[in-house]
Design a protein around this nucleic acid. Structure first.
Lengths: 219, 219, 219, 219
DNA sequence: ACTAACGGGACAGCCCGTTTAT
DNA sequence: ATAAACGGGCTGTCCCGTTAGT
């Protein structure tokens, strides 16, 4: 007739470990994105997640462990969704890269927060080998995905053959992250927009034109 | 032979406010460079400077004021010494820029610390308008110095005329800072070295060749 | 005979949040009574309560919050216990008031500390609206309790009809607190005793005599 | 032709020790009146006085010494000016006392600050014997002045003979200071005004009427 | 007599992590 | 698995006083 021992109203609070973990991760990602890892208040994460400390320390060993999970899961996933996945499906390297770059948000809120990966790399690399190694891994995967598309483009005769794919991928990433940093400082969408245009123009430089003119000025 | 009655260590109690301020500023710069602004411990700065709290609060209103002074004085000066001054004396834009870029240290300790300006921009821009405005000012001066040398190079027929000086200066800065970020993460001098080479190769792209071939591939 | 293996002092680690809060409140009340609110050292409160900082900041948001709770709970309760409760049970307004007044301690330690309510009013009213409003509330309740007993006495034909109950209540309070202040300064029980006698004599002035002589000199 | 050794503009800063001391004392009185002794910031006093720390420590041994001087000089003088002097010149004790009482300011700013003497008594008596003794002295002089006028009034047949002059003086002082405390808490001029009226009504009670009716109700 | 540099203790609040108790 | 109580170190700042220097 009635659930044994369980008072009716207590059943409201369903125990759902996976969901709790997910909520914590999302909340931590957002707090860290806003305030950096060290600047993030654990209690603020808890409040945002609607979870208490006991629950958190059940799922994670500590703040550091949450930070690692944010990198391993949230940030890695975002990067793949933004770069690897579209590039894997690409038929034209340039079109794909350009679309990705142009899709980067220029909302002030996004400018302010900057790139989650770059933020953590900058903040934590010299302080914590765990963070450093994890962000380095994401970076390597990111670079490899771009390099792969360049290499494939070279095989297809779309990309200039004398370019070193890894090297060029790093150049693209450096300039891309650099522009996001500059825009974070300027708080002006125009800064990022100019950067996006400049980077796209650079990419065009790498293309082999079928009209006989494969030469072009970069700037 | 020795001062009568005066204990050797007590003799050092001579006053020199300018030196005290300078020591504080240098110590703060180093601590901030290592640990970021928020991560910097005031007492660590004091210890490094060999100065007491009372002395510090005489020269600066607080931690924030020291941070501002570090930007306004130390970082601005470093940037000018590294970029503006050599560029102002340059006869060849490319030679000057390339030398500056190549001179950037690849010591592990320097990789770890990263670029003081970029670090502070990244950390403080969304948190403190005072820092944001100050770093933005330095950035603008830096960009202007590079743009000026491009413009002058165009007038001299050394630099391709169709390049927008400000735009190109920002590209150089973005890529430069981006590479420093990547190297901070990799902790590998080779990362920065590859970036320096790639950036130099990009600069060559902007040059007008006297040998008739002014065209070149960027990558 | 004794718990096995458990060290005697470790056994005390039982949890009792209500007791912890109570201990904090009592300790804070005593510290504040001695040293004023601003003069109270949080760590001294902690030590007196045998509680750590973490526990305190779990129960209270900060020093101010403790101060408010001291007023709202400890001081309000003391005032009710000393004035409102006896007055509510009184059959003779004068006998009740006189007993309350005479019961006020003249121990040197109590003279030194003064009246907790008056101390806080004096110290904090111009500095903190929260304290001001809280102490004003207690004061109003106190005055109302005295005024009520006067009014009831008037209805019973015990108290002179031409006296304004609220006004007279304030007079009693003002003189009472005034004497406590003077005694705090003199550190002499005789000062307070004289004040108590004078105040009692004043109260007699307000009484209607059944012996036909309802007139009297106040002094 | 020119002042020996003294540069023209340096002469502007006239050395005037007495004036410096006076400025310090006045500034200290005001700060202490606002914030209490412990709550007073020495540097705030200095700024208000337009004097530097060295100058202050030349004239006074420290904060405590300034506090003592404020009591001994500023507060004692104010009390004399407000009470002793008018009472010494009085022909009618009641008229004089009533005028003094009614002259007390009901401006919000004055309510907020309260009575300088009472403030210091309350704050410092249990903490510092120097303050206690000094304020007790002022209080005694004040009481004596009122008692003297009562005694003189009794000799003149103006004041009821059965009243104890010292005792009654204390009653007046207690009620007067009590009302100022209550008004400081209420921040309402009406509170003080009601107190002033009630106190005046009480004084009338002490008067011998020439119309044959020397009896009166106090309330 | 006066200025400014300097010394250094104290304190409130923040914040991460642990433990008890369901 | 989750909630709440608790432990306790650290840090920026305030603020009084002292001293070198004029």
């Amino acid at each position: 007739m009635y659930a044994k021992g369980q008072p009716a109203e207590a059943r409201r609070r369903v125990r759902n470990p996976a969901r709790t973990r997910e909520r914590l991760l999302r909340a931590a990602f957002e707090e860290i994105h806003r305030s950096g890892f060290r600047g993030s208040d654990v209690e603020a994460i808890l409040e945002r997640a609607g979870v208490t400390k006991g629950a958190m320390y059940h799922h994670f060993a500590g703040k550091q462990a949450i930070g690692y999970a944010v990198v391993d899961e949230a940030i890695a996933q975002l990067t793949r969704a933004k770069w690897q996945d579209p590039l894997a499906r690409a038929t034209d390297p340039f079109a794909a890269l350009i679309e990705i770059i142009e899709r980067t948000s220029r909302d002030l809120a996004d400018l302010d927060r900057g790139c989650p990966l770059n933020n953590l790399m900058q903040e934590m690399s010299p302080l914590d080998e765990g963070f450093r190694a994890r962000t380095a891994k994401i970076l390597a995967d990111w670079r490899d995905a771009i390099a792969a598309v360049f290499r494939w483009g070279q095989a297809q005769g779309l990309v200039k053959p004398d370019l070193d794919p890894e090297d060029e991928a790093m150049f693209v990433i450096a300039a891309y992250e650099g522009y996001i940093s500059l825009a974070k400082n300027s708080r002006d969408p125009a800064t990022l927009e100019a950067g996006q245009r400049r980077l796209v123009r650079h990419l065009e430089t790498l293309r082999i034109r079928n009209d006989g003119r494969d030469r072009d000025v970069d700037a």
